[in-house]
Design a protein around this nucleic acid. Structure first.
Lengths: 214, 214
DNA sequence: TTTTGTGAACGTGTTCACAGCG
DNA sequence: CGCTGTGAACACGTTCACAAAA
């Protein structure tokens, strides 16, 4: 199979969500055009993305909503359950633990770690000290780890998670992390997003000043 | 000025953070090579990014840490303060309100909205009902809005923020929002990130199964 | 006739490689 | 000699446009 771009995978997530909605609304067929419309992209993009994985549509008709949803579900690996450990139980960590949507989509948070708050309950879980991660690793069998700690602890936690055998890490700390190539890393960096907004707003202002009539 | 890519701006944020660190460590000069190393990218990328905005380096020497940091600060619009309104005071909204780092970088959260919890205090702020947004808009003079509400309210809140005159929106709700072109929109979607991890992990497994000796 | 699936064309972002300058 | 700044080459993702199929 040809290499699949990160952007294709992200769009697959979006298609999946739209399909869930359309299905709930009772739609049975959907064209690439309508799917594209709801995501604000082109229909060619939708067809190209989907064709990477197979021929799911029927010419002249479109895609079966239920069937396509099921295909994407399988492609994204949402047809199985993933064991997730969350490190850091501040607001972000808590948000992840609280959001029922994740459990519904196959992500089970099976352990929560923090340096403080050890022993406290958080939902069904008891908070462990981060130092317990290596000892608990064999029993937890984590697939993924979420880093929701302060910046300064992030790399150390990443190392611990890697040693604990996770194959994916979702990092919320605003810092570049280094992990072995076999471990997949995704970053969510609110600082970058806010600064990118700041740039866009400052930029408009600059452009307007420089060329008031363009 | 040539069109500036989204990825260049995002890297600028990263450079900025590295420069702050290096400065704190007492470094006075930095080469594109060293800067690149800390971000895990190529030095050509660093030079290309920076050259979009000017010639900040000195051949044979590198970049002055303090000067480059200041230049990027100005480019990103962090040399002024932005008035931010947060809608939704669940875990995500609270995280934003609580994180001191934002205030330090020029983002002042000047209002918090929610449907529930109206009248409660959150830090320095009193929570208002979302319906009060139009009435409060002239006095608040918001530059940006953060949407940290449940999915179903997100588009409605976006419309309210646009009417309130914000020029930038940071959206945490996992749904495509439609806003006028003059308003800049950035999305943070944890669902997409988790599903992209899930894909990567499922993918490795598939690849391994298909070609055990490659 | 409608809509998919897909090569070809296009555009954008990244990397190369080296001239230019300190 | 070292490191920046930058055209040229390259790689990759997106859009076009149309043959194929229902």
């Amino acid at each position: 199979m040809a290499r699949i771009s990160e952007s294709t995978v992200r769009r697959l997530s979006h298609y999946y969500r739209v399909l869930e909605e359309v299905e709930a609304e009772g739609g049975r067929l959907i064209s690439s055009h309508r799917l594209a419309e709801r995501e604000g992209i082109t229909s060619a993009q939708v067809r190209k993305d989907l064709s990477t994985f197979g021929s799911f549509g029927r010419r002249g008709l479109g895609y079966s909503v239920a069937h396509l949803r099921e295909e994407i579900r399988s492609i994204l690996g949402l047809d199985r359950r993933w064991r997730v450990g969350v490190v850091g139980t501040g607001n972000i960590g808590t948000a992840l633990l609280a959001y029922r949507g994740f459990a519904r989509q196959g992500f089970d948070v099976v352990a929560a770690f923090d340096r403080e708050r050890v022993g406290q309950r958080l939902g069904d879980l008891v908070i462990h000290d981060v130092s317990q991660l290596p000892a608990l690793a064999p029993e937890l069998r984590l697939d993924m780890g979420v880093i929701a700690t302060p910046v300064r602890a992030a790399q150390e936690v990443a190392d611990l998670l890697v040693k604990a055998g996770v194959r994916g890490i979702l990092n919320f700390a605003p810092r570049k992390l280094f992990v072995p190539a076999v471990v997949t890393l995704r970053n969510v960096d609110m600082t970058v997003e806010l600064e990118s907004l700041s740039f866009a707003l400052a930029q408009r202002r600059r452009v307007r000043r420089r060329s008031p009539r363009d």
